[in-house]
Amino acid sequence: MRFSYPSLVLLLVIGALPLATTSPYHLTVAGLALIFVILAQGTNLILGTAGQASFAHTAFFGLGAYTTAVLSTRFNFPLWATLPIALVLVYVVGSLLAYPALRVKGFYLALVTLAVSEIFTAVVGEMPGPLGGTEGIAGIPPFTFGEWSADDRLSKFYVVWVGAVLACISIERLHASHFGRVARSLRDSETGASAVGINLVTAKVRVFAVSAVYMGFAGVLYAHFMQYISPTSFGLNITILVVSMVVIGGLGNTLGVLVGALTLSLLPQWTRDYVGLEPLLYGGLLVVIILLLPEGVVPALRDMLRPRRRTEKSS
């Protein structure tokens, strides 16, 4: 199976966390970091790999979360039913949204998709019925598979960890597949892509919808992991945070996005003593990375190590 070793090592280290601590707090932080990994990988697919400036990811994240939350709390649907329903719904909505949204490019696409995210949270917040309005939905059941239920924090953490591993493996497989080649061709030259017979509209819609599925998957995991959701979980701050994870790690680089997502998810743990300064730290880090390492941290590190390896070989 094609999967980069550094990604595997990072995920194994996170998976081994319970050997060091079983504190519910630490496991919650680590579980959320893994959910952000999935969200960032999905965002990277459309933003980094295919080069489409889409910022609708939190809407799909929220759609996945709300779908499973409503179905499981109001209709007692089990996870094996809510998960596929949520993913199919996100794919369909993603496809339908992509057709009009992808008629515009660059800055305009960014604005349209950002508006979609904002409209989603506004609409959900204004619907108190089954969606819970601003109060959200509480009492979402934990992950349940048949007779087994992830009632404790450790079990929930491992379900999310398995989800993140599957998402990372599948996204790397996608990158190496025909789908990935097509997505990358869209970013670099639409004329070149047309010249090799790629239908630009179909290709963009597919990439948009598939990336939405990853975000929806992250949403499903989030809902059953936290067992509570509200519109604030899917606000503009999450949109900006996820884009920062992708940009800092390295646009289009799956390992970079993994590193970026883990770093920015865990950063608040080291800056807890400086309450209120987090936005400044995020912003500052983002500005520094964009100015000094515009391709992201991981691609920059890879480029720095490459000549050294050659020198070592030749010496």
Partner: peptide, 24 residues
């Protein structure tokens, strides 16, 4: 068409380009 300026995809390998070209 072999377009003016080649219009290749810089991060894709030679083999990736050839596989993309064969797809239609």
């Amino acid at each position: 068409l072999v377009p003016e300026g080649r219009m290749l995809f810089p991060p894709l390998t030679v083999l990736d380009h050839l596989l993309l070209g064969s797809n239609p």
